[in-house]
Design a protein around this nucleic acid. Sequence first.
DNA 1: CGAGTGATTGACGCTTACGTAAACGTAAAG
DNA 2: CTTTACGTTTACGTAAGCGTCAATCACTCG
Lengths: 136, 136
Amino acid sequence: MGYVHNDPVDLRTWSIAELAAEYDVTLRTIRFYEDRGLLTPERRGTVRVYHPRDKVRLGLILRGKRLGFSLDQIATIVDMYDAEPGEEGQLVYLLDQIGRRRAELEQRRRDIDETLLELAEVERRCQADLQDLQRA
Amino acid sequence: MGYVHNDPVDLRTWSIAELAAEYDVTLRTIRFYEDRGLLTPERRGTVRVYHPRDKVRLGLILRGKRLGFSLDQIATIVDMYDAEPGEEGQLVYLLDQIGRRRAELEQRRRDIDETLLELAEVERRCQADLQDLQRA
DNA sequence: CGAGTGATTGACGCTTACGTAAACGTAAAG
DNA sequence: CTTTACGTTTACGTAAGCGTCAATCACTCG
């Protein structure tokens, strides 16, 4: 275990297996994300040690996946979170990226709402058919 | 062209190129979906002719893709739309599927809302930093 | 008739996102 | 000391989702 019981949040660490269990992914997956530069855990000797920052990032990555983003897109999103202030060009670029992502997400939400409406309609039809069957 | 001008909606047809242009996908993509059983256009000789039903299905497929569903998942979803009444087992199965999809979609919407909130936060920081730079 | 234009079917290639061994290291427990 | 648990790298495999030819056919326009 990453250790102990009552550590302040910032001191806790996790093993790769602990993270895998908590987020229900395989070790392979976590290592793959590292390979792609999405995670950079500490190394103690050869062993990977994950800090709260790494854990948060993994959470963000998986949420991005649920949303259907590619790992490349996720990389740019996740990196936005801990970007340092930087120079003006950087900031403008970041703001631009944020705008794009927001537009994508809002489109997705519309897609979801439409789909939910249609599912409800299909469900209604289904239940009606079921009623008819059971009366017969 | 699929023909004419003022046909009742149900009579219009489209060529593969027209559909590709309208939805901004390649011919290859459309044929691939057919290969996977997601589309079944009419054949006039060797040529594919798309009816309104096919066009609608393509729209559903692409929306499914935007939502990050796999083609397999999309197939089951899309097929729900034109499922015939069928027997009780079928209907129960369908209702179950609907429930699952709905749960997935609602999770996704939560993901989106969280992400949007966080993006707004990052944006706020960004704009603040930009302000600071421009005062200096 | 010849040149385009737009369609068709293969067939091979490529990227993404991992799965799945194989072969090895290390450290605590029985 | 050997087993067991947990970790490591290297590397090949695979499924999904198309891109990209190549070869061929059908129709129309000048």
